[in-house]
Amino acid sequence: MRILVGVKRVVDYAVKVRVKPDKSGVVTEGVQHSMNPFDEIALEEAVKLKEKKLATEVVAFSLGGPKSAEILRTALAKGADKAVHVQVSEAEAAKVEPLHVAQALQKLLEKDKFDLVFVGKQAIDDDASQTAPLLAGLLDWPQALYASKVEEGGAGFLKVTREIDGGLDTVKVKLPAVLSADLRLNEPRYATLPNIMKAKKKPLQNIPIKDLGVEIKSQTSILEVSEPPQREAGGFVEDVPALVNKLKEKGFVKN
């Protein structure tokens, strides 16, 4: 089984994001970026499948500007065997939508055979959650989204446990398939020194997006990005009677 894992370069989860003064988006210049945490989980699972000998090869994929190469190097240090960077310019990178990523993946899959495409359930920057289902639709492959457990499901199948509102949904999915990883699937490993050292020379293939014939044409337009409303400061009360009085005063409790 060959696995293609999508990894996206996003603003690091620990960064406090700031909205641009013109409200067109958030500030990304000079801000720490890292691999989308949900993609890290997908990658971890793929490497685990390789360690269990269920997978033969794990290839990391990223569509993005020049700096996406750093994220792919990290993916290689975390256990991916190869990496593919579908390159767009810095300006185009800001306009990439899930459909473009799904289209690029579709084109890659026409050239190179994979049995599984694994991505995070969503990226923490746009929270779109669309790449996996769009890709499954374009390819007409089965999908198993929000995976919290991935197991062998008999020849040509995987058994996937999905986290849904009502509890857990267990599905048997026929390969080739598209999977997306939920938070509780695993705990990603760190890139350690020996892995970083031997990952430096792993193959990283660059493909300009025009070679795939995918055009970055916006499907949506951003009207406005704004900060969440500021919470007003609260106050302290001395004791319970004071609290009750306060509640009555504010009209939360009837007399």
Partner: peptide, 9 residues
């Protein structure tokens, strides 16, 4: 060793 060197068993 498997834990230290990712992807091999």
């Amino acid at each position: 060793v498997i834990r230290e060197h990712y992807g091999f068993n």
